[in-house]
Amino acid sequence: MIINGVEIRDTFAEAFPMVGTRLIVTADTPEWALTAGRTTTGFATSVIGCGCEAGIERTLAPEETPDGRPGVALLIFAMDFKQLKTVVPLRLGQCVLTCPTTACYAGIEDGKRVPLAKTIRYFADGHQISKKIGDKRFWRLPVMEGEFVCDEDTGSVEGVGGGNFLILARSRGQALKAAEAAVVEMGKVEGVILPFPGGVVRSGSKVGSKYKGLFASTNDAYCPTLRGTVPSQLPAEVGSVMEIVIDGVSFEAVSEATRVGIAAVCALGSEGGVVAIDAGNYGGNLGPFHFKLREIMAADAENGAGGAA
């Protein structure tokens, strides 16, 4: 399959089950909401080293939030529910509670409950106040700036982590430009995050290492500077590869994000220096979720998005 001169390789991204939750963080201004969101989702690129994967799903207008202030929706994923219950209150306590003017609310109503103020309310040292409205309880914690308002808990979902695709381009600049275009479009898809810096990974990994104790190491088959010295997946004209990793609340959300991301890259086409789209997998033996690139892009190719072949 070729779209606008870009080869869509006959392969698939292999992804894993994760559990995730959504937090709605509001603040007096969009800037402070974004600051809280960025801080809360910082150092959360990969469960391998961070304990969770997190990102800003989207910004929220005042009319979309529980308290009528600007906000952000954050998604946080972990490998199991126990880990999720650990990392969410930690990030809430260190990054949202501390951030001026913020409040935090449940972004998912169903599923197993992840504690929010249920855990961090004790910071108020007995001065915390709860209020139950309908079936929902929220807490007010007196803080030096005023009050921190927070829902007692939030729901959770069984999601998908590790969706991905690789952008193979002629140069580093062209690979990055294509990745940036994909990130912009993928950011419009609800229910997904791209947990790596700016949504882009320049150091994709393979499973295992020659060194004992390392779970992952550089994906040498896609390193252009190793071409010829290792079994490479890169044709001669490829000078740089960028990866985009996707976590989402459902298979469908990740699939849709993959589609719009690849479409954005293909819109730049071979004229933009893009050679091919590939994906990372482990032979299909590890992760139950397979995102087959050609199936996902079939409709776009049929619609003649840049000259399918």
């Binding site: 529980p66 308290d67 009528g68 209020k131 409205i133 929220f138 005023g146 009050e147 308002v149």
Partner: peptide, 14 residues
């Protein structure tokens, strides 16, 4: 006197 987020929240939730 305070600017209470809780009041805004109650106004919208109740």
């Amino acid at each position: 006197a305070h600017e209470l987020v809780a009041v805004r929240l109650i106004a919208r939730r109740v």
